[in-house]
Structures are given as C-alpha cells and as structure tokens.
Design a protein around this nucleic acid. Structure first.
Length: 274
DNA sequence: CCTCCATCCTGTGGGC
DNA sequence: TGCCCACAGGATGGAG
C-alpha cells in the first residue's frame, strides 16, 4: 500500500545497511516474488557476491545500483515491507525474500499479498520493464511540461495523477491530498484544467510528499505500512480528506464525500474543491 | 495512443 | 461474540 513517502522512508532506513555492502547470500522463497525476472533464479544469481553501490528511488521503486551495471529493483506492492535483522532472528509469516550482507545483516522482505517483487535487471531490461515518468518528489516536471502531458486527456485528473508514466510516486492517498490542497475535484478531466489550476496541482505535490516523508509515511491500519524498524507512519493524523468520508472538512467543516474513480476510492471536499 | 476493467493475493474491519 | 464479505496504499495487460 506504500506510496512515495513510505517507499522513501523505507529506502532511507535500508540505505545504511546496504550501501557499499556486498550481498553474500540471497534467496527467493516465493515464486511470485521473483516473477519479474525471466527466471526467478536470476535474481539470486545476479545478486550473490555483488556490491551495492547506492540505494536510489524512482517513484515507488527502490533501486539498488549494483556492480556490473545491474540494478536491484524492489517494489513493495500493496503489502510489502522490509526488515533488517540478525540471521538468528525468528522468521515471521510471508517472508518471501532474504539477502545477507558482508556485515552479517539480513534484509528480509515480507509480503502477504505478493503484489510486490524483487528483481535484478540489466540496463536494457530495466528500461523495458520500468516505464516511469519523472519522480514526483526529486524531479517534478515544471508546470508547462506537466500541462503538456495532461493536454487533451479526458480521464479524471485523479486517474492521471495515479498514472506512473506521467509522474512517478503518487498513489491513492497522496493523489487525493494533493487535489484537496490544489482545490481541484478528482473528477475533473485532466485536459480541462485551467493553467492556474494546473499550477496549483503542480505546486501541491512537493509539500504534500515532503510532509508525508517527514511523518514517516501513512499507516492506515494495524496491518498497514511499517518501516524496516517496525514503525508505523504518522501522516494519517494529518490527512485532510483520505478516509474521512462524512467527517467535517478541516478547512470549511463541510462533510467529506467519497466516490469511486477508476475503481479507486476517492475523497474530496465538495466545498473546497471545484 | 487512450480509457476502462479485470486480475493477481491475503488480512481485516465493519456490519449484521 | 462470531461470521461474512467488501475492501485495501499497486501495476499490468487486454479489450474496445
């Protein structure tokens, strides 16, 4: 269920354990977790013995830059999370991937719904597999570029914000929060926004994501997001609209409404958002 | 190319 | 209290 802030929180906590470390052991425990490589065994073979230079993030993907121009790709899907433990630590349910570093730490991937995956791609494979727009946080396009991508599109702006090929990183929660901050209804057609509205949407993205990251992400339920340290995110308390159907708008008091757009729950204030 | 929709899974929270 | 099922923060591929 993680979006950019949850993935970034995860990346920051993993980085000290992985950067400039060598992977000495790796194991894929569940075939679905390795499904994005042609052969799941490739993940293990390409990881073993390799040095991780740096841990990057693009949208909701964590990218480990390896030796030999390989990239270790990690996606949390809906229910994925990482743990850093000692090899003796008891294993919890749904542990689908394990790697050990030359420092003796174990990185474990837990993913009940198996929508997440672990892969290792060559540069060509990476380009073919990850079709992503620019990162919504560290590389957000300027308004004219964004406008060009939305121009002529009839789909609801909410759906377009979720399209990772346009801008990478926003998910269902933060897209709703961005649209609230921008004062734009999620049902509006992307191509129908005025220049001013486009600017407002664009300008809302940075602060919302920054606040989400500062809070360590959003955890909606007990089985929701947890960092590699096992902590929940605190951003839930700061949400303006997501999950607040019927509750008073924090700005104007009007009850928040919910509707389904593109099969996803969407929350908005009928008074603040035009 | 665009839009819409089904699909892959398990856990749980809310309604009855 | 217990049971049941709608629903969940994502990505993708295919139909039209």
């Amino acid at each position: 269920m993680p979006e950019l802030p949850e993935v970034e929180t995860t990346r920051r906590l993993l980085a000290p354990y992985l950067e400039e470390r060598r992977i000495v052991e790796a194991e894929i425990r569940h075939p679905r977790t390795g499904r994005r490589n042609e052969n799941p065994q490739d993940v293990v073979d390409r990881l073993k013995g390799r040095l991780v230079h740096r841990l990057d993030r693009h949208g909701k993907f964590i990218l480990g830059r390896l030796e030999s121009e390989l990239t270790w790709v990690m996606h949390l899907g809906m229910s994925g999370r990482f743990l850093i433990v000692s090899p003796e630590a008891q294993e919890i349910a749904h542990t689908h991937f394990i790697a050990r570093t030359d420092r003796g730490d174990e990185i474990r991937f837990i993913d009940p719904r198996t929508f997440g995956f672990i892969a290792v791609f060559t540069q060509d494979e990476l380009e073919a597999e990850l079709r992503l727009g620019r990162d919504a946080f560290i590389d957000l396009p300027r308004t004219p570029q964004l406008a060009a991508r939305l121009n002529g599109r009839k789909a609801p702006i909410k759906s377009l914000l979720l399209d990772q090929r346009i801008v990478a990183g926003l998910g269902n929660i933060y897209a709703d929060e961005v649209l609230f901050r921008a004062g734009v209804r999620p049902t509006r057609r992307g191509g129908g926004l005025s220049g001013q509205e486009m600017t407002k949407v664009r300008k809302a993205i940075g602060p919302i994501l920054k606040a989400g990251i500062a809070a360590g992400g959003t955890s909606l339920s007990k089985s929701g997001y947890r960092s590699p340290e096992g902590r929940s995110g605190e951003y839930r308390r700061k949400l303006f609209v997501y999950g607040r159907e019927g509750d008073p708008c924090r700005r104007c008091g009007t009850p928040i409404e919910r509707l389904v757009i593109g099969g996803r729950s969407s929350f908005y204030c009928p008074d603040c958002q035009v």
